[in-house]
Design a protein around this nucleic acid. Structure first.
Lengths: 102, 102
DNA sequence: AAACAAAGTTACCTAAAAGTAACCTTCTTG
DNA sequence: CAAGAAGGTTACTTTTAGGTAACTTTGTTT
């Protein structure tokens, strides 16, 4: 590994996708509840700001981990769910959780 | 999961241990080269400051992922290596690396 | 005696991440 | 026709992470 190319390392990319104050909680919620709506998630996480939650969701969407789906009824409804790629994180996150609990 | 207890979640704890700008690179170095000395690592990572490198190493040591060993000869020599717990991250990091490369 | 080496530490400074409160748009209901 | 709800955005402030350069300590080499 040439260290000037380290930004392209898969480990670095994966950990960057998962780092963010609220991402573990979002992922936990997704694996536990399946999909959710923006405000439902937000209300269940009382200490996160809408701004940061929206940022985190956008980042995760841009990495292909979650997908956003708008229904055009009223009131507007936006659902977030894991993509297939996101679901493939399942075993890894389970292993991390186990590791973190020692 | 009660969200006010989320700080104690294993996933959160694990990801916190692994997050830090240079930790993926340190781990990569450890798994690839085995142990190293402070300045050897530092010289191979020209863009990290000694302060941050020392901080990262201290955090990882405090989590039991790496161990620090001083020899009392001269010049002083400090070696860092993975602990057994650290080695147990191997398969997880390999899976993350694969995931990160899609 | 001066210079150097290892493994840091210290006192600052800058950049990035997160938080706050107010606001916006489109429709619905009272 | 005012209020409210969903799903955000905006401008601004605070907090945390990371960076810089100089310095320290103990001993060795020149």
């Amino acid at each position: 590994m040439d260290y000037k190319d380290f930004e392209n390392c898969g480990l670095k990319k994966a950990l960057t996708m998962l780092s963010g104050k609220w991402k573990p909680m979002i992922l936990h919620y997704l694996f536990y509840h399946g999909e959710f709506r923006f405000n439902d998630l937000w209300r269940s996480m009382p200490r996160v700001s809408k701004k940061v939650l929206a940022d985190h969701l956008r980042q995760m969407e841009s990495k292909g981990i979650i997908k956003r789906r708008e229904t055009n009824g009223f009131p507007p409804e936006v659902n977030y769910a894991l993509t297939e790629k996101g679901k493939s994180l399942g075993p890894i996150l389970a292993a991390l959780e186990k590791f973190g609990n020692n």
